[in-house]
Nucleic acid binder design. Structure first.
Lengths: 132, 132
DNA sequence: CGTCAACCTGACGTAAACGTCAAGGAAAGC
DNA sequence: GCTTTCCTTGACGTTTACGTCAGGTTGACG
């Protein structure tokens, strides 16, 4: 049905990672490629998950946290209790993300202040052109 | 002159870290406590740096990156070229921080959407009380 | 004087996220 | 048929940021 399958090499090109990384993610059950005998074949679902994995990494989640996040995205037809647990987990994570963003905002404000101080140091340093 | 010096134990209480952590930071030249014979004595400057170190860690910098940041904070009377280099580095970092925050904002929006979807799943699951 | 708490210096252990190397299978081109 | 290329599975190495001992000092207290 959906057989736009990719080899490990093609995946590496697409996502700019090494084969080791993809095998590692499989070992950690973050992705589950099919097999042609012994060879891995990566489905469209794998690629979707890879995008999410790399997104997660960009803002500092561990692979284990990402695995849980992926479970949240792909719940399917499980028990409602399971969904509720995931939902609660999601709320927690949202709170953490918002806290993190607020800290980052504050840090950015501090940092801007620091840079203004740097500008003054440069200005008073006897040189007229601060940006050359 | 300024002799409000603290022992390692007092520092641990103040910053909620272990002695090992402080010794490690000294080994990595993030802080430079004085000595009374063999014992470490932490100055006010050390405590200021510790605050900045912990700040840096909170939003995901490595200790090595933090060490460079601290150099930016405590420039002193170095060459102006040096100051300029640090300043440029600071601008870069600010850009990175803002990009990170924007990604986080976007992720939070996505996530909120995801949670709304979860709420609907719960609502349609035949149960009236979604939060018990 | 003993000992107890708080400190010291190695030095080895650990978890995460892969890198790297060895040894081998399978298909594709010449 | 032989070589090259791409893939496979172990299995050990690496970095970061410490934890966790072992063994040795030192100052204060009873």
């Amino acid at each position: 049905m959906d057989d736009d399958l990719k080899t490990i090499g093609e995946m590496c090109d697409e996502f700019d990672v090494t084969p080791r990384t993809l095998r590692f993610y499989e070992a950690k059950e973050l992705i589950a490629p099919k097999r042609d005998g012994t060879r891995r074949l990566f489905t469209r679902a794998c690629r979707a998950r890879m995008k999410l994995i790399l997104m997660g990494k960009r803002f500092g989640y561990s692979l284990e946290e990402i695995r849980q996040l992926l479970d949240l995205y792909y719940i399917g037809d499980q028990q409602v209790t399971q969904i509720r647990r995931s939902y609660a987990l999601g709320l927690e994570r949202l709170a953490r993300m918002e806290a993190q963003r607020d800290e980052l905002d504050a840090a950015i404000r501090d940092f801007r202040q620091q840079l203004k101080w740097g500008e003054e140091v440069l200005a008073r340093s006897g040189l007229s052109r601060a940006a050359e």
